[in-house]
Structures are given as structure tokens and as C-alpha cells.
Design a protein around this nucleic acid. Sequence first.
RNA 1: GGGGGUGUAGCUCAAGUGGUCAGAGCAGUCUCUUUAUAAGGGUCAGGUUGUGGGUUCGAGCCCCACCACCCCUACCA
Length: 939
Amino acid sequence: MDYKNTLNLPQTKFPMQAGLVQSEPKRLEQWRQAGLYERIQEARAGAPRFVLHDGPPFANGDVHVGTALNKILKDIIVKSRTLRGYQAPYVPGWDCHGLPIEAKVTQELRAKGREDADAATIRQECDAYARRYVDSQRTQFQRLGVLGDWYNPYLTLAPAYEANEVRLFADLVEKGFVYRGKKPVFWSIPYRTALADAEVEYADHVSQSVYVKFKLVGEPNTFVLIWTTTPWTLPANLAVAYNPELQYAYVHANGETYIVANLLIGVIAQKCGWENYQIIRTATADELATLSYDHPFCPRTGRLHGAGFVESSTGTGFVHIAPGHGLEDYQLGLQIGLPIYCPVSDEGRLAPTADLPREQQLPESLVGKSVLEKNNRSEANDAVIALLTEGNALAHREDYHHSYPHCWRSKTPIVFRAVDQWFIRIDHTVPGTGQPFRQVALGAIHGVKWIPDWGINRIKGAVESRPDWCISRQRTWGVPIPAFYGADGEPILSADIVRKAADLFEKHGSNVWFSQTTEELWAACRPAGWTGPEAVNRSQDTLDVWIDSGSSSRAVLMQRPELQHPGDPMGWQADVYLEGSDQHRGWFQSSLLLSLAGNGAPPYRTVLTHGFMVDEDREKISKSKQGQGGYQKPQTADRYVQDYGADVIRLWVASQDYRSDIVVSEERLKKVGETYRLIRNTLRYQLSNLYDFDPAQHTVPGEGLTSLDRWVLGEFGRLEAEVAAAYEAYEFHVVYQKVAQFVAVELSSMYHDIVKDRLYTDAAGSLRRRSTQTALHRILSGLSQMLAPILVFTSDEAWELIPGKPFDSVHLSLWEPGGAVTAESEREAWQILFSIRERAMPELEKARQAKLLGKALEAKLTLVLEGREAEVAAAHSAELREILNVSQLSIEPGVGFVARVERAGGAKCDRCWHWEHDVGQSAAHPTLCARCTVAVSVS
RNA sequence: GGGGGUGUAGCUCAAGUGGUCAGAGCAGUCUCUUUAUAAGGGUCAGGUUGUGGGUUCGAGCCCCACCACCCCUACCA
């Protein structure tokens, strides 16, 4: 007779093969139809709130793996808090304004021959463009298993958002933070606009550096030598700076006399080809202060000034000062009363200005020369160098390799250029505190928790060193700065005006600023009882996009009822912000400054930071490398999802400590795929052995469980507690490590392997089997729950098949970890038993290698034990035999540890494969052991 | 050029205030199983903790220098 079908062999609908790429979209659809996100929020109504505020990605392009990492981490946090009973809403957002979209749209319009499109038209196109990408990115984010309020996100282009952003701006105006000034700012020539610090990327660059002779007035044949990497700024030169702390000397060479810094003489001599130079005498700082020089090609003179920022590491010790082209130059210029002279037009061409008499300015030959570089050369540089050569003012010219700021969009080198712009004054004295805003901000930083803790240094560094915030952009696609200009050209800006504009934006969208006439706008925005000048023009500038996203505390956190912490006066503050570490300078900072200035408090309580994606060589994933065939496939989220499935991607995200860099490689993903299969098979094993288990009827209470089951539940309880703590601390890689280890060791290698015999061969309804099923059921539920934030699809798939579950989705369930605890004495006994097992296994393996036996059940094992081990083993000999999985075990007291293996006696039971002496006692079942005979007759 | 971070077996992670702490899992090897079977069990092997110094009776863990990579920064004018 074939007894195989009398066994309780595993049965389940949970497939071994996941087929994630096909199955995940189905589950996603199931969730969508069920309104899972909404149901979760309803289920947690009244529960304590946990708010993670989303940093808005830019609504352009496909979702990059790095962006996917960020979103997945956020989702893991939200889901894990939800699981623990919090109401954790997730409102995704998108950053919709800005140069990349405007550039793309104008390009498209140009291609369609619509070069004459006006601002309002361009903006409508931009709006449509941004929304298109919001849709496409939304789909990609959802595919990752991220749950949220996807169809009610926050968009920085929404009229209500713009209105609240502008109201926040009004508060800043009211408190005196905002001013208009002419200062050097980053300027993108191709896009004809000022750029924010955060819109600048550093890249390697080769500059044409020149050593230039400035002829001293009244000292024949004597020159001050300056060095610059930007020859095109020389027409703007108004002074020369030296460092009073440095030593300078007169040097005679090639028949001329030069003044340079002592420390640099050697280097300069080599570069300029001074073969037999002589140091004539030192030049004191007092002496230098009296000197003036003739500009090399503009008919004017300048003076020398002491300045601490001049360094002696490179150059000549003298710095050419152009207050219109550098921040330090500008500051020095202000100090000594120089005009902020910037003879470069918006288009990046040299041009005279009204700051100086025309005759003192650049020669006609330079006018119109373009500063913009192509292949490391620019017309302006070439023309200036030609003039210098002509005038015998060029001492040396060489390529200079360094990293230089570039426009993030056009990838061209930016220029520093003084223009009239709107600024936020960072050192503004905060009304009511008497403290400079910068100090207030630094103080507030200490009230926020930064994870990892070095994050505080980053944000402090950013706030300490930042200049005033240039907030105006010469662009169309953005929130207009609601300012006007009077007949005299002076700006008109007040909080009341701005608030009225905000109301207008709220009603009609900010497009009104471009579609209506100045008269109409002024009529709508002019405050009642206005006594100031009347507006004749409106501002054409838009706000820096960092003001957009940085205003989300006002425009989102304070607006949405579901994001408030009821009963907390500061309840609008988010619990967590989570972005890449570059955002210390970016969104973390802009959000902090704006919320502090406008709302009076930081927008967040904890700021979490993650590292960046690097490839297998730990080099950053770069577009250029992609272009050179460095990657086989595009580094988009979708591509990885299509290859591995979202759950594997999520497990990969969880597997690494995200606080440092994240390695993305096929090898790594394949390894994680292995772990995924291990976990999946574990869940499958448990499910498949619960096919006939109804927790309502069959659950065995704690005291009735077998000791082994109590042991495993105790271990599992400890795991749950550790995993819960790891989630709490945002250490998901610890979750991964602990779970993977537990699944591989405690479950797969130990418990599951041991318990197979009971589950398959005991009578289906036997206490021992039901006891083990009780444990499996408990572990399966808990395991699904602790995996749910990471394996969002797989855990739900398993959960669905768990008998008697009280929630229809694991994501709705409440996870209460760390329930069962094994008594200490029982735990100690099991530790001893497993330690004996560990030492006995190799002995069994030796016998196997010697071909004495195949499976352990063919063995009889004799253990010689001493002391406590002997005691425990004797008291638990049945358990010990079971965990060794041998047919026969004999324990003998003795000395030390000896394990003797021989073939088991008796006969092999046809059903359970144990070797027993009681096989054949039943006439009905002559090939069965006594235990199986009972099992067969019961069932 | 400055600031911050990282660097432990092929891969991910561990190793309170320096003292059996060099460990785990995975992958790899050999092997047993056909009652989780495109699964499962067992066995073995793997690292002079980026490099070089130093402090100490004793250092992945403290100090110094250097190297590699990542992030931020500075118009080296």
C-alpha cells in the first residue's frame, strides 16, 4: 500500500515562483479598486498622527532609481508606522515650475514655429507639460508599491499652492526680509537669468588664465602683476587687492620691475620666463596702499587696497577687483566706495554701462564680444587677451584646470554678474527678538533631530556661510513676484499688495499676472488708501523655485487637515522630512528658512538623510557614463522593476544602510533576489502547512504547546521586538539582516526542518501537530506583518492566504510585536539541546561521507554527555531525538562529549521512514510503526 | 583648496566606554535528500579589519599622515 497519501503533505495556492513582474500590477489594481489607501486612513481615524512630508521631485523625465530609493524609503517609514497603529497619511508632491520645463517647452514651441508665443501661452504649455509628467511619474511611483493620496497630491503650480506661497512671501515682506539690490549673482547666459546657489553644478573646467601687468602710476617700467582665470572680467576691473599680512617684493626681471608676493616669486618666475630675476627690495603694506595703476586697456586708473581674502597659494598675491563680477570684489567695492560696475549685458556680451563715463570704459573693439564659452574659448576672452598682448601687458597665459560652477540646465559655465535682483536678507534682525535671522536659524537647528547626527553640521554649515538669498528669476515659468514699478523706476512692494495678488492667484491662477494689463493688476492689488507712488509697470521676475518647494510648510502642512497633529499647538509641523544629503543645502535649508521667517518655527521635527546611488565600482551613477555605454540599461526605476519586480527592488533598498552610499549593481540585486526567494519559500512552507488549520478551533493555548513550539515562539518574539525597534530607529538594513537570518537559521535550518516530521506524519488533528500549526500561524502572521513595509506585494499575497485573518490586507492590520516569551529555564534547556545538536551534526555528516547512511533517520546516535548537559539531555531526550532527526537516540553519562553513529536498528516504517523496533505489529499495516498505525487509523 | 561622510571575508551587515571581537547571513565548495523538490538539510573553505606610522601591557575600535570613493562648498581672483 502506498502510504504517501495518508500523510499531511503541504498544500497551498501560494506559488513558489513569484512572477512579480506580472503579479504586482494585478495586486496594485486590486488595491486601487478597494481604495486601500483611503481605507487605511479610515481605519486609523482618531489614532495618533505621524506625518512624513514629501519633498517634491521635479515634474520632468522618468523616475530615476535614485528617486525610487527616496520614495521607497519614505513608503517603508509610512507603512511601518501605520502597522504600529499610527495614522500616517502620505501626500506626494511635485515641483512643477522652473527652467528645465520652460526650456523644453520653448524648444518645442520653436520646433512648431511658434517663436512668438507670449508669456501666458508659454505658461499654459508649461502647465500642461508639468502635469503630463506628474501623471507619468505618478504611475511609476505607484508601480513601486508606494501607497499615498496619489490623486490629490500637492503641485506647486496649483493656484491654492501659489497663493499660500505668495502669502508666506507677504509675511517676509512685512517683516522686512525682502529688499531689491544690485549684487553679483550666478547668471546663466543661455537662459538669461539669475540662478540660485542650488541651481549651480560644479564641473571640471579649463580656464584661460592670464598673468597681467598693471603699470604703476609714477613708477616707470614698474608693474603690479595680477592673475585671473576670467580675462573677460578685466574690462570691469576697478581696483587691485593685496593682503596686508603677506610679504611683497620688487623683483627685477627681463628689464622690467614687478611687485609680487614673496612666497610666489619662484612659481611666477618660472611661468613668466624670468631667467635671471633679482629681488630688489621688499614692499611694505603701507607702501602698497599708496599705489595706483593704469588700467591695461581702459583709460582710467585704479588703486591698491588691502583685503584679507587674498591668498598666497596661487596667483601673484594681487587680485584684480571687479565689484560687478564677484562677491568678495563686490564687498570690497562697497567698502571703498567703488561703483558696482558690470559691463556685461543680459545676453552675456561686453557693453558699456551708465556707471562710468563712456570714455573711461572698454574700447570699441571689445563691445559686443560674447563671454559665453564654447569649447573653452570665448570671444570676450580672446579679444581681451589680444588687447593685452597688443599692449604688452600679458606676462603669461596658461590653461587652468579647476572645478567651476555651471548652469544645471544648459551645462555652460555660469558668470558672476551684478544685476538688480530681489533678495532675502539673511542677517535681518528678526522683529521681536532683536537677533539676526541667521542666529535664530542656527538656534532652531538645535531643536531638530538630525539623522545621522552629522547632518546638523551640514545644515549649520549651509546656514552659517550662505549669502543673502537671491530670489528673483528672469523667467516666465514660475510664481510671479507681485511687485510694481513707479514712474521713476523705483519698485513698489508691500505686504498688502502681495496679499491682494495672492487672492488674485488663488482665484485665477498666477497666469493673470501675465494675461492682464498692468493697470488691471494694479487696480486689483492697490491697497485701500494707498498713498505711495502709482504703478506704471509690473515686475517681470518670478520667484526662485526653491521658494516654491520651500514654502510647502505653509502651502501644504498648514493647509491640509489630515496633516495636523490634533491638540498640539505646533501640530502643523511634520514629524519627518527625508531626502538625500545634498538637500541640507537645498530643500532642508530653504524649508527651514522660509518656515522660520514666515511661520516662526521649523517645519520639521526630525530630518533623515540618505546617501546617493553609486555603481558597482562605487562611482556615482552619471549620465555621461550612461552615454559612454557604462550601463547596459537606463538607470530608471521602471527598468529595474521590469527586470526584478518592485518587491525585490524594495528589499534591495532595505538591505543596505542608506545613510551612506547605496550600491546598485546586477550582482547585488541578484543576491537580494536570492534572499527574496528564501523568504518567499519560508512563507510558502508555513502557508502550505496550515491548509487544514482553523485558528478559531485549533489554536492550542500557551501551556498546551509543546516545548519546541514555545521555544520557537519565544525566539520569534525576540525577533519581533528587535525588528520593531529597528523600524522605530529607521534602520531598515537591520530589519533585513535580522529577518533574513531568522528565516535562514531559526526557521529553515532548524524549526521548519525539525517540525516536518510532526506536521506530515502525526495524525492531522493531533495535539502535537495542532501545537506546531499554532506556532506557525502566529509566526506567519507576524512575519508577514514585519515584512509588509518592505515586501508590500508579497506580504499581502501571503496574508490573503493565512487562515482566519482579521483584516483583509496586511497593510490594514495592526502589528503587536514581541508577544510570546519563553520561560528562562525552558530557554536555557533549549540552548543546551541545540548546542548538543550543533556538535552532533558533524558526526552524522562524517557517517554520511563514509556512506554509512544517507538521511539522519537511518542513524542511531549514542551521546556521551556530562554535567548539566547530561541532565538536560536526559530530561528532554524525546526533544533531543526530534531535533537531531535521528530514529534512535541513547544518552550515556560520561566524561566530555562523544557522539557515536551507527545504523538504526529495527525496520524502516514505510510511512514516516523512521527506523523502529515496533514496525509490523499491526496485521492491517504490517509495514508501519506503531505511531503511524495510530495516525492512519485516526484519519 | 576647504568641510562632512564612507572604507571589516566575493556580497550585504555585526562587533557598549580599546582587552577570546574578527562574527553572522548570503553567495562558493563538497555532500545528503525526491515526504517544501526550478525547493530543503548537512559539511568545509573565506578577512594581516583601505595604506603607513604612533599611543597602549593590549586597537576595526584612540591619535597622525596618506589613498580611494561619495556629498557639500569656493568664481584659486
